[in-house]
């Protein structure tokens, strides 16, 4: 009996040690980031011999924000992110609902086709999508055939449109909605609800966890977009925060302390959002794909 308890305690200690080690591995880059943000340039060039800063230079945060119009960059990023996340939730959840509950010809083929899109990285389709954005008819000086102007290049909409719908969002919503009992739909139909009403009155309120999850994932993805806004925007005033980080990088040198300070400020909105939505996030991930 005694040895059983001893073994159990040993197991617990081992498990906790492993978890602490994993946590340390995860936290370590963040610690380095914070320490670097508080160091002087001289300490950074000294490498490991100056692991901890002698003096905490909080002024690095202020100096970093002086390099460029950061208020504008945050506003630009916020506009793009909020619009993208909002539209993305509407479109992905409606598509997910249709794939989960509605019957129509070619449903599965269409769904698998959409899933193929999940396998293609953005880098592969970037140039064709960019050409489409540039050749959107009747916008940005274009004629009806999409010629003559710049379409949605150098325009928020040019960044937002391709980011709205993504097969992963559709997949996530479909799997979540498939977990709802079909009897709910049948009862609503008997009460005279149309498919849209069923979505609005049943699926929407019950889908909060998946919307929080998808919203958070989309928020992080959009907030961190780099290459796509870089291609679309040709005006420094439209820079997003990620693009603005380049202010600290030269061809051969990098101002690491300012770069890290600015990065900490940039990830704050994501961190705050995650803290608030954490409960739903875990719930959404845990219950996606479960069937009654």
């Amino acid at each position: 009996m005694k040895s059983y308890h001893l073994q159990k305690t040993c197991n617990k200690i081992c498990m906790k040690t492993i978890f602490i080690l994993i946590a340390l591995i995860v936290v370590f880059p963040f610690v380095i980031m914070v320490l670097t943000a508080l160091k002087s340039n001289q300490e950074i060039t000294q490498g490991l011999s100056a692991f901890f800063p002698k003096k905490l230079l909080f002024s690095n945060f202020i100096e970093a924000m002086k390099k460029g119009d950061w208020v504008r960059y945050f506003i630009n990023t916020a506009i793009i992110t909020v619009v993208t996340v909002s539209l993305s939730l509407v479109i992905n959840s409606l598509a997910g609902y249709a794939f989960a509950r509605m019957r129509f010809r070619g449903k599965n083929t269409l769904f698998y086709c959409a899933m193929v899109g999940m396998m293609l990285p953005m880098q592969v389709i970037m140039i064709p999508v960019f050409l489409q954005i540039k050749e959107i008819p009747l916008l940005g000086g274009n004629d009806i055939w999409g010629n003559g102007g710049i379409g949605l290049v150098n325009n928020y909409a040019g960044v937002i449109l391709p980011l709205i719908a993504h097969p992963f969002g559709v997949f996530l919503c479909r799997q979540f909605f498939m977990g709802f009992p079909k009897e709910l739909d049948e009862a609503a139909k008997i009460d005279g609800c149309s498919p849209l009403q069923i979505y609005l009155r049943l699926y929407l309120p019950m889908g909060v966890p998946i919307f929080a999850t998808l919203g958070l994932l989309k928020f992080v993805d959009t907030w961190n977009q780099y290459t796509w806004p870089l291609l679309v925007f040709n005006d420094p005033k439209m820079n997003t925060v990620q693009l603005a980080l380049n202010a600290f990088k030269g061809e051969t040198t990098t101002e690491w302390n300012y770069l890290m300070a600015a990065t900490i400020l940039i990830i704050l909105p994501i961190l705050i959002l995650f803290i608030f939505l954490q409960k739903y996030f875990v719930q959404g991930i845990a219950t996606t794909g479960m069937k009654d």
Binding site: I79, V83, L87, L139, G140, G141, G148, G149, I150, L152, N154, N155, Y156, A157, I160, L161, N234, D235, K237, M238
Partner: peptide, 19 residues
């Protein structure tokens, strides 16, 4: 309306930049 509002939400440089 959504598409048009998005199309107009730029910094005012929607015409060919080199004109």
């Amino acid at each position: 309306l959504m598409v048009l509002s998005m199309a107009s939400c730029n910094s005012g440089s929607s015409v060919n930049s080199k004109e």
